[in-house]
Design a protein around this nucleic acid. Structure first.
Lengths: 129, 129, 129, 129
DNA sequence: TTTT
DNA sequence: TTTT
């Protein structure tokens, strides 16, 4: 079992990219509030969604929206530019529930097909946050 | 809500340190297995426990033991030696259940009071993993 | 581990009672929606909160409000009037988060101290739903 | 969200039945222990699994085995023989992890196809616990 | 009806 | 740095 459940608000619009094989990947962060030491604090937690879920997130979520995310915790390692090994920890979303009324958003969220620009295409499973 | 539930095995004995104010902090990692692409993979997830829970983890857990951890996901930022901002993501344990029989361990786990050596004392909440 | 996490709306105002020893007990149900067979269905799930949490629920929640409940699943047996053994299954709340803006409620929720009426006082842990 | 996570031991071998349309349904209870009032108590929680999961449960689980169950809480109403409405509350398993070593069981678990006896066939979704 |  |  590897289960994560988070309630928070998007800190920015989701960014939707596509892998070389055409799989959609949405990235965003949520701020999860908690009280500690008498004052409100926030954890900023990176979320990643894949395929169909990535697309619905890209189409429906915008900065500030509140979501309930269910997923699993993923830790990946990669070699940084300076040759050092670095870790990327993120929550891979399995389900996302939208918790406030649709704010008939003027700025349509993310969902940019980067393939159409021929850049920012990542190899499979190799997307640094 | 910020909830994490993980089932896995310790990759090493817990390390128990003490903050300057005397609070115990246990650190360990667990390997959480999952099947993906037809084969078994593992996520190695850093766990931190505080105070009384830190001490019971240090006294009872050893490398290889299977645990069910309930906690919250914490993301801290700190300035690295190279001046860069780096992130530490870890699960702050709130409850730990031991899932296999006590392997009447010869090597008693961790629980070294580093204060008695006058080193490795960290300021509160400033313990890099 | 006995963990339940539910997102739903109160089907009625909470009812707050007091045990003979003076412990507050709030009871309410939430409707948890889900899609099944192409249409929306609801599970109506009985929730019980104790002591301080009972009082904050009684003071802050009203019918229709959306909550995120964390608790444990409890199954109690009792003898019914017809001599038959019956089971009561309910979620004992450990934490309740309010998910929509305070609807400056006209009808203040529950919180009736039944001791002041000398009735409906239940023996400890013996409150049928 | 309707999420239940339970760690417990089977109180009996699972019983596997089949609906008229041929869907497998496994039923069993697990004892979930907890400390309360200085002593160990147990909640006995009814679990139901459907289809492929029902079959793997029937084939692999026996009384006494420890499992980690993830599922959702379901509340169904039905008319009892005495004309009264009665409620059935159970956890519908979505995933079951086996937590102790296979006890190379002599008595192979459940999995009796009751259709071969022409009895105990229940209409869809109408299986009283 | 109850598990270890 | 990695568990079974």
């Amino acid at each position: 079992m590897n289960k994560v459940i988070l309630l928070g608000r998007l800190t920015r619009d989701p960014e939707v990219r596509y892998t070389q094989s055409g799989k959609a990947v949405a990235s965003f962060s949520i701020a999860v509030n908690r009280f500690a030491g008498g004052q409100e604090q926030a954890d900023f937690i990176p979320i990643v969604a894949w395929e169909k879920l990535a697309e619905t997130c890209g189409n429906n979520l915008t900065k500030g929206r509140r979501v309930l995310v269910e997923g699993r915790l993923s830790v990946r390692s990669y070699e940084a530019n300076d040759g050092q090994k670095r870790r990327v920890t993120e929550v891979v979303a399995q389900n996302v529930e939208y918790l406030d009324s649709r704010q008939t958003s003027g700025t349509e969220a993310g969902n940019i097909d980067i393939n159409s620009f021929g850049k920012d295409v990542f190899p499979e499973e190799e997307i640094p946050f």
